[in-house]
Design a protein around this nucleic acid. Structure first.
Length: 278
DNA sequence: CTCAGTGTTCAGTG
DNA sequence: TCACTGAACACTGA
């Protein structure tokens, strides 16, 4: 589920639930993997009684600015999410008529109760997500190494051109590299390359001026649009490759009837349209 | 029962 | 150092 747009929606959920409020109490799963070795007791000690002064995101990471340190950092892995009755994606997606109104949701790893009665849960079914603490998240290991966030700090074209010229990797691999563009994941990389009409195997440094410009424009546009609709797939434009890429079906076609093919690049399934991407 | 998978990290190779 | 690959992580859901 989570690439930049989904994580940004998670930030909104956390913000709606907890911004400006005090964490009065919390339940914490004993999970050494997800909590990076921290015990439930130490997680509670750090969070209980703290006020959430801001909810930040960079790339696929979310962290809280609390009124005391250290601050918690959340990463969803492949299956995590924030859930809150204050802003529930499942309710939104089904116009309120969802059978999945179980609370707390399955696979809850941390369940925060705020002083006004609001609640926030982070779920993580496959345990590839992480919750860790840092004195200054923006300056510490995972987040400090990230490249630009395409929603918040998209470089201007001249600088983007220089960054491309400095990289010899394949475009697909480059877009997935979080130290280049933070928050791009597998489907966004494919969508951007499809819309920019670029072969995912092309090398970054060999793009011509027009190709650089298309990549720059589509990277920004795809992410902006997905964020604008709160990462709701049913609201992604109908002509996006996104709707056609799942299941590796040999008969897959684009909106315009072009053949969708599949490659493995950088260890990930890559959907692309050879008749269009050069 | 098998297996892909929307993510990250690390060891190993060239 | 860079570029890249493969494996590991963990476990659901098809």
């Amino acid at each position: 589920m989570p690439e930049l747009p989904e994580v940004e929606f998670g930030r909104k959920v956390a913000s709606a639930a907890g911004l400006g409020r005090v964490i009065r109490s919390l339940e914490v799963e004993a999970d050494e993997i997800v909590f990076c070795g921290d015990s439930p007791r130490s997680v509670k000690r750090r969070l209980k009684g703290a006020r959430v002064e801001a909810v930040h995101r960079k790339g696929k990471y979310i962290w809280f600015a609390l009124d005391r340190r250290p601050w918690p950092i959340f990463h969803f892995g492949m299956t995590g999410a924030f859930r809150s009755p204050a802003l529930d994606p499942l309710k939104l997606a089904s116009h309120g008529k969802q059978k999945d109104t179980i609370w707390p949701p399955r696979f809850a790893k941390i369940w925060m109760h705020f002083d006004d009665g609001n609640e926030l849960v982070m779920t993580n079914a496959r345990r590839l997500g992480r919750i860790r603490f840092a004195e200054d998240p923006r300056l510490s290991p995972p987040i400090a190494k990230l490249g630009f966030d395409p929603l918040l700090e998209m470089p201007r074209l001249p600088q983007f051109r220089r960054q491309l010229a400095a990289r010899k990797s394949q475009l697909k691999g480059l877009l997935l590299d979080q130290s280049f563009a933070a928050g791009v994941g597998n489907w966004i990389a494919d969508e951007v390359l499809y819309q920019a009409a670029l072969d995912p195997r092309r090398r970054a440094h060999e793009l011509d001026a027009d190709e650089q410009k298309r990549l720059h424009q589509k990277l920004r546009a795809v992410i902006q649009k997905a964020v604008e609709v709160d990462a709701r797939k049913d609201r992604f434009p109908r002509r996006w490759l996104f709707h056609r890429r799942w299941g590796k079906q040999s008969e897959a076609r684009t909106h315009d009837g072009e053949r969708v093919e599949f490659l493995e690049i950088a260890g990930r399934t890559t959907a692309w349209v050879p008749t269009r991407q050069r």
